[in-house]
Amino acid sequence: CFKERTRSLLREWYLQDPYPNPSKKRELAQATGLTPTQVGNWFKNRRQRDR
């Protein structure tokens, strides 16, 4: 489970760009304390949910 602060940050970035490039994923990973893989998976799952 991600912290609420982490989730809200991911949601904000998702609204700006649902397909972040690898450098954006690394930047988000540093900002949230997650790994780039976790960030990528979150975006993938979120895109799937929005279908």
Results as ranks from 00 to 15, higher is better:
D17L: 04
R5E: 12
R46L: 06
A29T: 03
K44I: 05
T35E: 02
L15G: 07
A29P: 01
D17R: 01
G40A: 11
W42M: 00
P22D: 11
K25S: 06
F43L: 00
R7N: 15
D50K: 03
L28C: 05
R46V: 05
D50H: 06
Y19A: 08
L10H: 01
A31N: 06
S23H: 08
E12K: 09
R46K: 15
Q38I: 03
F43G: 00
T32F: 01
T35G: 02
R47F: 06
Q48N: 11
R7V: 13
Y14P: 04
P22A: 12
Q38N: 03
L10F: 02
R7G: 10
R49C: 06
A29K: 02
R11P: 06
E12Y: 12
L15N: 13
P18C: 13
K24G: 07
R47A: 07
P18G: 01
N21Q: 06
K3R: 09
L9A: 07
Y14A: 01
K24W: 01
A31Q: 13
F43S: 02
R49V: 11
R51A: 13
D17K: 04
R7F: 07
L34V: 01
N45M: 08
L9I: 12
T35Y: 02
E27S: 09
P18W: 04
P20W: 00
G40I: 10
R49F: 08
Y14E: 01
L9Q: 09
E4Y: 07
F2G: 13
Q16L: 10
G33A: 04
D50C: 04
E27Y: 06
V39S: 01
R49S: 09
E12T: 09
G40M: 05
R11G: 09
R51G: 08
S23F: 08
Q48C: 11
T6Y: 09
Q38V: 07
N45Q: 10
Q16H: 11
E4G: 06
N21W: 05
R5V: 14
N21D: 15
R11Q: 10
N21F: 06
R5P: 08
P22K: 07
R26G: 10
L34K: 05
R47Y: 00
K44W: 05
P36W: 06
K44R: 12
P22Q: 10
K3E: 14
L28W: 05
D50L: 05
L10R: 01
T35M: 04
C1E: 08
D17S: 05
P36Y: 13
R11E: 13
R46M: 11
N45C: 07
L10T: 00
Q48L: 10
E4S: 12
K25W: 08
T6R: 07
D17N: 05
S23R: 06
W42Y: 07
E27V: 05
K24Y: 04
V39R: 01
C1V: 07
P18Q: 09
R7I: 14
N45D: 11
S8K: 14
G33Q: 05
R26E: 14
S8V: 13
Y14M: 01
N45T: 10
N41L: 06
N21K: 15
S8Y: 13
P20G: 03
S23P: 08
R51W: 09
A29V: 02
R7Q: 12
R47L: 04
R5N: 10
Y19G: 02
F43C: 03
T6F: 06
T37I: 11
F43V: 00
P36G: 05
R26P: 01
T37S: 11
K25F: 08
R47E: 06
R11T: 15
Y19P: 02
R46D: 04
W42H: 04
P22C: 08
R46S: 08
L9H: 07
R26H: 14
K3Q: 10
Q48Y: 13
K44D: 08
Q48E: 09
R11F: 13
T35C: 04
R11K: 11
L28K: 04
L28A: 00
L15M: 09
Y19V: 06
R7S: 14
Y14S: 04
W13N: 15
S8T: 13
K44G: 04
Q38M: 05
R47D: 04
Y19T: 09
P20L: 08
A29L: 01
L34H: 06
K3V: 04
G40K: 15
F43Q: 02
K25T: 15
E12S: 10
T32P: 03
T32N: 05
V39M: 00
Y19L: 08
R51M: 06
T6D: 06
E27H: 07
W13P: 03
G40V: 05
E4D: 06
R26Y: 09
P22T: 15
P36M: 14
R7E: 11
T32Y: 00
Q30P: 01
S8N: 13
T32I: 05
A29Y: 02
E27R: 05
Q48D: 08
D17F: 02
D50R: 00
N41K: 15
Y14G: 02
P36T: 13
F2P: 10
E27A: 06
E12I: 05
L9M: 10
Q16P: 04
R7L: 09
F43R: 03
T32E: 01
R51K: 10
A29F: 00
A31Y: 08
N45W: 04
R26I: 14
Y19R: 11
P22H: 04
D17G: 02
W42C: 01
K44Y: 06
D17A: 01
W42E: 01
K24Q: 12
V39D: 01
S8P: 02
